[in-house]
């Protein structure tokens, strides 16, 4: 690998540290993760019927960046959402 293309190890250290600290800090506050999960479910439940017991929210690394990945099994889409949508279409 060319020495010119390779990023400086000090920069690599800084970036890795940033990501690892973000993950450390959030995983040290499990109540915070729980609250965020609850809030997420509340919002999503307005539109679709979700299985609250099977929700998973976790940190992953995507392309070196920290990412929140949520797996929320959907039981059904609420009829009211569809009719709201139709109603707004008609209005147009």
């Amino acid at each position: 690998m060319s020495p010119f293309r390779r990023s400086k190890s000090g920069d690599v250290a800084r970036e890795r540290l940033r990501v690892v600290l973000m993950q450390d800090r959030i995983s040290l506050a499990p109540q915070l993760m729980e609250r965020m999960k609850e809030d997420l479910v509340d919002v999503i439940s307005r539109y679709v019927d979700v299985d609250r017991g099977k929700i998973e929210v976790e940190w992953r690394r995507a392309d070196g960046e920290p990412a929140l990945v949520a797996n929320i099994p959907v039981r059904s889409v609420r009829r009211s959402v569809a009719s709201d949508d139709r109603a707004s279409n008609r209005a147009l």
Binding site: K8, S9, G10, A13
Partner: peptide, 10 residues
Amino acid sequence: DRGDMMDIGD
């Protein structure tokens, strides 16, 4: 100086 160590600011 040569970028191989985090500096104080980092």
